[in-house]
Nucleic acid binder design. Structure first.
Lengths: 244, 244
DNA sequence: ATGCTATTTATTGTATACAGTAATTCCATC
DNA sequence: GATGGAATTACTGTATACAATAAATAGCAT
């Protein structure tokens, strides 16, 4: 902490070879770093993300940071208020409902396609992901587990073969992680330990309808595990209390 | 046409009062202008969008233009290739299939919710939109008609009450307009003239399942009306012709 | 004449400087 | 002592300047 001074400072050497992140890739890396930090709840909802602070940390100028923040804003992971800058989005209860309804519609609807395209290789990959997730959960790394769980759902959607819908699912899962971060109970993580394994079983057996029904219950269970009390802001309700 | 010279040129007067688009709004206006031009096919797929050309036209600096182009890129209306700049996206046949499959899943799935929330006011608004669309079609303004048709589908999705899914539909409809621009037959516009009116009827009657089935056929009809021959690039097929 | 290399040009990528605005602090006044 | 207002600070919004790269062109050699 606090060594905001010694950072990066490349730029002098530009030609130094192929492994030095070719500009675009560095942006992608930084984007991922911030995105992961948000999804893993290391950056908590409401946290402000000042541009030059980020610029210092990652050793690029504010220009690049703004680009990344705008992308995150379009994905609704950060909120960009006109002259206040960026902060990690704090999803409302309404948004949470929308997100889970959307997942219900899309992810469930995708299951038959996924089942149809599921082969041994795909199943093995998914099982490995589920294993890592269980392990993270056992070793108490809740944040990592949340992200791995999201990764699992995204990978599943990708296996449907529809890139557009997979991208939608990706965004919904990121937002879900935020929702879990705000409304989830500590200790009770979203996905039950064995749900994902069970799901793989149905898919591998080619039973799309069964998988669909299971996914539906799975998502309902996650949503039901949330406690949807909107944390009141610290001082805000005066007007609400005394009526309009 | 071709009067790309006389445009805009504000900037000299910054303080000139509240009605002069408060910065953020000007960006939104420009975004809409470009977006509409793409959707209405005044900017054809493949057209390059040079940054300073746009900057000149709209009287802001490249900084603002880049922001807008990046947003359009995230919505997949423009394609941003690393050091070549931006161009209007030319959807592939695969993407077209993905988009229509996604619409099939989402828009149809939304119909029951829409039917449930449909009131007189909503129905009247939709009928008015359908009327405008028919009129544009009759008067030969095909581009405008395409956009109005997209607007109709988006408004419908919004009436479901799920903002997240409505946003997805918005993006899918924009991309559909591009797809129609590339693969649609001249003269045969996507949506049949009376389809939208029929749909409103079912929804107003609260018959969600009927509306769902009708929407499904409606979308299938649009997709079927496309001629999915990928326009070969001007010189490209040599390798394909003479085998790899 | 053709193919290859070098120069020029057009255009994007990035940083930085400056302007403008909201938040904060401090002081004067009631 | 609290309240209102002015000065300061901290931050974002925007433009512009400069660097870097890819495309186009011309020149040279074979």
């Amino acid at each position: 902490m606090s060594d905001a001074q010694a950072p990066v400072k490349r730029r002098a050497s530009v030609k130094e070879g192929k492994e030095s992140k070719e500009g675009d890739e560095r942006h992608e890396t930084i984007y991922r770093a911030v995105s992961d930090a948000i999804v893993e709840q290391r950056l908590k909802p409401g946290s402000r993300l000042r541009e030059d602070a980020l610029a210092d940390v990652f050793g690029i100028s504010r220009t690049g940071i703004r680009k990344i923040l705008q992308r995150l804003a379009l994905e609704q992971l950060v909120t960009l208020t006109p002259r206040r800058g960026a902060s990690v989005t704090r999803p409302t209860a309404d948004e949470a409902k929308d997100v889970f309804d959307a997942r219900q519609l899309i992810e469930c609807g995708l299951m038959p396609d996924v089942a149809r395209r599921m082969g041994e290789k795909e199943a093995a990959e998914l099982r490995e992901m589920a294993r890592q997730e269980r392990q993270a959960l056992r070793s108490g790394q809740q944040s990592v587990a949340i992200r791995l769980s999201a990764d699992f759902h995204v990978r599943l959607a990708q296996l449907s073969g529809n890139a557009t819908l997979a991208e939608f699912v990706e965004r919904l899962c990121s937002r879900s992680s935020l929702i879990l971060a705000v409304y989830g109970h500590r200790g009770h993580l979203g996905c039950e330990s064995h749900d994902h394994d069970d799901l793989i079983g149905y898919l591998e057996a080619g039973n799309g309808e069964r998988a669909k029904a299971f996914m539906s219950r799975h998502l309902k269970a996650i949503e039901a595990s949330l406690s949807m009390v909107e944390e009141e802001e610290n001082v805000p309700d005066l007007q609400q209390i005394f009526g309009g």
